[in-house]
């Protein structure tokens, strides 16, 4: 679930990059929009979402989980 930055809300404080345990924002600089340099290494710990003071970070559902998505669910799960 790699992070997605809403640039309309982001204030470029860099906290998301600072708190990421997996360093997926490698190369991000303060006063610039965060760079999600290694999205496939996100372990969806939610730190960036938690730390963002503006609610500008959300986590994207990764492709392997999208493969499992079934619009007719929950019917098929019964």
């Amino acid at each position: 679930m790699p992070p997605v930055i809403n640039e309309d809300k982001c204030i470029k404080c860099g906290l998301c990059a600072k708190y990421c345990a997996e360093d997926v924002f490698f190369g991000t600089r303060v006063k610039e929009y965060p760079t999600v340099a290694y999205p496939e290494e996100c372990t969806h710990c939610n730190s960036c979402v938690e730390e963002c003071p503006e609610g500008a970070v959300s986590l994207r559902i990764p492709f392997p989980m999208m493969l499992l998505y079934r619009p007719e669910w929950p019917k098929s799960g019964q």
Partner: peptide, 9 residues
């Protein structure tokens, strides 16, 4: 503040 297995909760 976010390291280790406890980082996620």
């Amino acid at each position: 503040e976010s390291s280790g297995c406890l980082g996620g909760g």
